[in-house]
């Protein structure tokens, strides 16, 4: 294991120990923050797979989060209020399966188009698709449109009860662990080598006989599906789902988490999400003008901390794009 891997292990260990302490001592709000943090870390990890390791700067990952959340919300809505019997369920496996399936499909269709473009065109077309989904959801009156959807029932699984904050957190934490290991496995596989090779020099990989486009598309679909899964967790956590989750600024926040923590490192997204949540919480409790120090911090990080915090901690510069 490298030093960067150790940082990931330490972060995961901390996240395993702290929240039960919060519950034990009655700090339920801190528990909420930890849950949100872990879910965002999963979403950021999925973005890191394409952005960090694949060099594909997606500015539309918030759409996957939103789609995943609505994949939980819409079945729950129909289960409560009738209609659309085929998907009116509270069964967690169906809901989460739906979240993964829908986002993977969306990633496949949009990825086929987006990956034809490069550079800033890719950034902007991913954002365009996210905006389309955003306005698409807003236009559906039945699911609340701009007002969002309040769901009164969480996904139901055998053995675990998501209404219990600790069990919900447990599910999120285990999910994060699995996602981190999964990303690690992908990155170290032959598939991951080709993907990372494509980032450095696409033409050379093509000359070597690899269909880089196909590799990138598969990575994009995997990333979208993981992000959709994070969205399903988020929907279960907040029990309120709104188009706001898919706003372009949310995609920007996910990018910030990855860059802040350190792109193309395993620990990066976790550290980035943690810093993001802590900063947001601390600064906004000081002043309503908290966007000012937050924006300055963002600029300073980009200008001076290349490789992100993980790079700083492990003493090795990551690859700031």
């Amino acid at each position: 294991m490298t030093r960067q891997d150790w940082i990931a292990v330490i972060m995961l260990a901390l996240l395993a120990v702290l929240p039960p302490l919060f519950i034990w001592t009655g700090q339920y709000f801190w528990m909420d923050l930890a849950t949100r943090l872990v879910i965002l870390a999963i979403a950021a990890s999925s973005l890191n797979l394409v952005l960090g390791f694949g060099g594909l700067v997606s500015f539309g990952h918030a759409a996957f989060v939103g789609l995943g959340a609505y994949a939980v919300g819409i079945p729950a809505y129909h289960w409560l209020y009738g209609g659309m019997d085929a998907i009116a369920v509270t069964n967690g496996f169906t809901q989460f399966g739906l979240a993964i399936g829908v986002t993977a499909f969306f990633a496949l269709i949009t990825g086929m188009i987006c990956l034809r473009t490069r550079g800033v065109y890719f950034i902007m077309i991913t954002m365009a698709f996210a905006q389309m989904i955003y306005y698409g959801i807003v236009s559906i009156e039945e699911y609340g449109g701009d007002d969002g959807l309040v769901i009164d029932t969480r996904s139901e699984f055998p053995l675990i009860d998501l209404d219990d904050p600790l069990q919900l957190y447990g599910l999120c934490w285990v999910s994060l662990l699995v996602v981190v290991l999964f990303v690690r496995m992908i990155v170290r596989s032959r598939f991951g080598m080709v993907l990372q090779g494509g980032k450095g020099n696409e033409e050379r990989m093509a000359t070597l006989g690899y269909n880089v486009y196909a590799y990138q598309l598969v990575a994009y679909v995997i990333s979208g599906a993981i992000c959709g899964y994070a969205g399903a967790l988020l929907g279960n956590f907040t029990t309120f789902i709104s188009p706001e989750m898919m706003d372009w600024t949310r995609s920007g926040e996910l990018m910030f988490m990855v860059i802040l923590g350190g792109a193309s490192t395993l620990a990066g997204p976790i550290i980035g999400a943690t810093m993001f949540i802590v900063l947001e919480e601390v600064l906004s409790s000081w002043t309503v003008y908290w966007h000012l120090p937050f924006g300055l911090f963002l600029i300073l990080v980009v200008l001076y901390i290349r490789g992100g915090l993980t790079g700083l901690l492990s003493g090795k510069k990551g690859e700031g794009e």
Binding site: V57, I299, E321
Partner: peptide
């Protein structure tokens, strides 16, 4: 001299400021 990603993030920060 940096990539577009860095530029997007830094100027996003500028909007907030």
């Amino acid at each position: 001299s940096r990539g577009h990603l860095d530029q997007v993030l830094a100027t996003f920060g500028l909007i907030l400021v």
